[in-house]
Design a protein around this nucleic acid. Structure first.
Lengths: 337, 337
DNA sequence: TTGAAAGCGCTAACAG
DNA sequence: CTGTTAGCGCTTTCAA
């Protein structure tokens, strides 16, 4: 006994029931010009009766898919969930639907996810992994509008939404230095380079600059970890046990910061920790993570808006840098005397 | 000299460059039967040269889209990220791509997201919001294989992956009662009903049963909250300040549990908390949330596997219930004497 | 204001 | 083993 998969209603069926042509139905569907109220009504009735749903794939062959794609590097990082929520919210009331392509870590993966989205003919894409290579990005932005998150270089190929990473990192370092810390480590991902115009690159650069400005270049240490709280924990734990003389750590994002806090707690070492992003758990009283707040929802919403503007005809590249704000909580106190 | 926007290569272009027919290219593409090595090579070369990427939309008109869709109710809940990660992992090495449709709370939203996926012709869907109405589900499962998460009823229309919610909830309650608590509240979402075959329904039911079995029916209290840590915090805070005489709370999932812990900490009230899911932060030493571990990755991977089995021809419904395990940590101690 | 008809890029019979 | 051909369900000129 095999499962019957009855053919769903097509535009042709609707046309027949309504006693009109396919073209007419299509026009009603797209709210196109030149349809009488009477016809609209009959067609609408037929659509309801048949429970008609247009096939996006068929539309894609000629026109739009009414689908926006967002590529996310790490679902486990709550900051990205915020961006996605903001993007979804901004789409409410529009005919567009957001789909997410998970990327796992790595620049190659980011590109792969982006291409999967393009293959599926999304009308626009939002790329959150910053480390997508230029060639790939060029290819993609040739066929669909792109909004890149967090890039601090400029391009006329894509729009940009970013946080003010320089200010944020400066504020974080100012806080730690102001507390009297002299041995501050920076915890970042494997691939980040201080010369790169990506969020972690900028944060790393500002860390080094701040240490230098404080005359502490000799104390600067950069700890590198794979993505995620657990790898971060492992790295910091190892460093702490190796006796690295550090009293504070500035983590490139909150998940890494949580890992550092876990390591310090388990190793029984006092460690001031500052994070970045301000994910919801950061403000939990048991954690009290001092961190740099980024308005994730607003940033996601703005990215969507930029795409909609492109559809509406904008051709010059847009670019918006969001303000960030240091949230001082309990995770970073003064160093032991 | 105007810049021609290059039309992306089609199967026709590849055929011309390789000097073969479209059908031949299509066969190479799909690894279909009856292609000589020589032809395969020429075609592959042409594809690389033109940087050819098949248009999923065009394929969708005739065959598969090589796309699986998963609908997720709450990106902010880390447990769902785990499911998605497991699903993505299980797809590695297959030609399939996973896309995520975010749903926001509510059964209507879950259905909407599912339909958006179906409109986009995914080859199979995984539904994580359990509260999708039967009529909608019937319609959907008529056109595409469906795996439902967490449903404890049986159906011949869709496959099921779930955790053993009855055992998990029993273990949670046994723990709290064993510690000597007599005033235990259950914290759950607005809509959950103890008669419903959904995860939260079962957990609620087991809570009531355990209280009754301990002769504590008179002490049973169910707190209801909207989705998320913040609403949970608000509800618990209000209850605590109203002086509800409670020494412990069994939360329907970890995010709610974190909200309860935050409320207790801020209200300065000692409160034993047990959660459900075991999201990564639960094991952080600053939190130490006692909770019921569900193997999210394995569950996501199994759901994907069920879909692949359907594609391979399975017609009888499948169903797998995963074991869960109570993780005892520090968040739930004995009640004050 | 409406409809006929020509594709969009691909797959899958079917012929050769 | 390879090519020809007929659509899949839509949108979009272009006539009527």
């Amino acid at each position: 006994m095999s499962v019957e998969r009855p053919r769903a209603a097509t535009i042709e069926d609707v046309a027949q029931v309504a006693g009109v042509s396919r073209a007419a139905v299509s026009k009603v569907l797209r709210d196109a010009y030149g349809v009488s109220d009477a016809m609209r009504e009959r067609v609408t009735a037929a659509m309801t009766q048949l429970n008609y749903r247009p096939r996006i794939a068929a539309r894609a062959m000629r026109g739009r898919t009414y689908t926006l794609g967002i590529e996310l590097p790490d679902l486990a990082n709550h900051f990205f969930a915020r961006i996605a929520r903001g993007a979804t919210g901004a789409l409410e009331g529009t005919p567009y639907q957001l789909i997410i392509a998970p990327a796992e870590a790595g620049s190659r993966e980011g590109l792969r996810a982006l291409e999967a989205l393009v293959d599926r003919q999304v009308d626009g894409v939002i790329a959150v992994s910053p480390r997508v290579d230029e060639a790939g990005l060029e290819r993609i932005s040739a066929s669909v509008p792109v909004v890149m998150f967090g890039r601090h270089d400029t391009s006329d190929r894509y729009d940009v939404v970013a946080g003010d990473d320089a200010s944020g990192a400066k504020a974080a370092m100012r806080h730690l230095l102001g507390l009297g810390h002299q041995h501050i480590a920076h915890l970042t991902l494997q691939e980040s380079g201080a010369h790169e115009p990506f969020p972690h690159g900028v944060r790393l650069h500002e860390y080094e600059a701040a240490m230098a400005a404080a005359g502490l270049t000799g104390n600067a240490v950069v700890w590198r970890t794979d993505e995620g709280e657990t790898p971060s924990y492992g790295v910091v734990r190892r460093m702490l046990e190796a006796g690295t003389p550090v009293t504070a750590v500035f983590a490139a994002h909150d998940e890494l910061a949580f890992g550092a806090m876990r390591a310090a707690a388990e190793a029984g070492v006092p460690l001031a920790v500052v994070g970045y992003d301000d994910v919801p758990m950061a403000s939990h009283p048991a954690l009290g993570l001092t961190t740099v707040h980024q308005p994730g929802e607003a940033m996601g919403a703005r990215a969507v808006q930029m795409l909609l503007e492109r559809f509406a005809g904008r051709t010059e590249p847009a670019r918006e840098i969001f303000d960030v704000e240091l949230k001082v909580r309990t995770s970073a106190g003064a160093p032991p005397a």
